[in-house]
Design a protein around this nucleic acid. Structure first.
Lengths: 245, 245
DNA sequence: CGATCGTTTGATCCGCATCAAGATAGGTGG
DNA sequence: CCACCTATCTTGATGCGGATCAAACGATCG
């Protein structure tokens, strides 16, 4: 996944798969580039959905805040990720979460009607959208199960491996692309708990100092942490790990 | 929601909303009725998705089993519910969970290609499907959050209220449509924990004896249990409760 | 150079899982 | 009709994991 998406490379994202070049061009020409500065909100919970976005560069977090102030991060978006497609098709037409730029971010923005019309016009696009949203639904369920059944240490280990692969980092040493607190929130645990697990992970071949991470023994890491994973077989993280190996 | 769906009333389910009568008729005529006996599997995890089903009568549970033998029930289907639509559209084309009839069950069965072709043919159907699957994705996330942030007692209370409303039972007294262990599994808790919460709930106006449930003070129940809910505002259970009140 | 934010570490507490032992109920066969 | 069996449910005792509260440390920034 590239760190940046330009208007020219936009056609390569999964959503536009198997569309003809003309179709892609027709679709993309309606997009408008828009910048968000760090901490700026794309939308809030309950807002009517009016836009569909594709992230071109930067980082966006999607989260919900409970009345007691806790925030659970449900997704962290990077270049190529899309957002807004779900709320647009729902009966309520309202966003079910808050979305906020973490860093300065550039997005390609499309109006609501564009997506609805495009689905009617291009059957392949609706199939792609269905595939994408269906996968989101399954992943949400899988993750809930994953979080319920695994220790904090294992969740962190899996997350780091996954991150390493998804961003194509060097397993022997890389920098975290965002803060530890954001990761903790994403994993649904307290910062204190997250921090504590790091010392445990050191005994399993995962070292973190500051924002620098290093897997010191790939083989040990795979066999100890990921294979032990209670839902290893069906765990998307494990699958990606294996594909790479 | 009726306890049974006949071929004639099939057109009323949400999936066929806003389709013309001709369209509905054309769609439904390809369906084949099929019976499953209690404990029979509809499909297993990893099976290629080949069918789309609509439940006509009976109960079906959707679940995942982890290597250590624990099963997490992700959904319980009754008449009018659909199943299989997600796997059909996913790139893997494989079911991501097991599905098993709890009671003897009758389903309307459609072949995979029927759904894929229909989406291309009827734009409205693809919008309905997108709405449905998008909602499933959001609900899965909401539920994960709900389960992570609420006590066992509150989860049970919310579940019972929701059940009462969804099935249009009499709040002053009704029978559970399935076993307590199935409910516990659905809520991701141990049977022992579930059982323990029942005594606590008695102090909050919810009495359960055997499979008989009674909310003895509706007002107290709404204010004590549901309003306290940490994600009350966005909790679908609460919304339904309020709509009813 | 103090102020603020993010992180680490420590001490304590609470809730749920776990293990284990009864209790209840539904079903079967004698 | 009763004795037995098994599945389901209840109740008790215990332990562990992570939340919470709290304090100190480190880094970044005006």
């Amino acid at each position: 996944m590239p760190q940046n998406i330009s208007r020219e490379t936009l056609g390569n994202i999964p959503l536009f798969k198997d569309l003809t070049e003309q179709e892609k061009k027709a679709l993309i020409k309606d997009g408008r580039l828009r910048s968000f500065s760090a901490k700026q909100y794309l939308f809030n919970y309950g807002d009517p959905a009016t836009k569909f976005y594709i992230v071109c560069s930067g980082v966006v977090k999607v989260f919900r805040v409970s009345p007691d102030g806790h925030e659970k991060v449900s997704d962290i978006l990077i270049a190529g990720s899309t957002i807004g497609e779900r709320a647009i098709f729902e009966a309520s037409g309202q966003h079910q979460a808050d979305a906020q730029a973490v860093d300065d971010t550039v997005m390609m923005q499309f109006p609501l009607v564009w997506l609805k019309d495009s689905v009617k016009k291009y059957p392949q696009l609706s199939l792609n959208l269905l595939a994408q949203i269906a996968l989101q639904a399954d992943n949400a369920e899988l993750e809930a199960e994953h979080q319920a059944q695994n220790s904090a240490a294992r969740l962190v280990a899996c997350f780091l491996q996954r991150m390493c692969i998804a961003h194509d980092f060097n397993p022997r040493g890389f920098e975290l692309p965002y803060s530890k607190s954001l990761i903790a929130a994403r994993l649904g645990m307290e910062v204190a708990t997250f921090s504590r697990t790091l010392s445990k992970l050191r005994h399993h071949g995962i070292a973190m100092k500051g924002s620098h991470v290093a897997f010191d023994d790939i083989h040990r890491l795979e066999s100890h942490v990921c294979a032990d994973c209670a839902i290893a077989e069906r765990c998307p993280m494990r699958k990606e790990m294996c594909k790479k190996a």
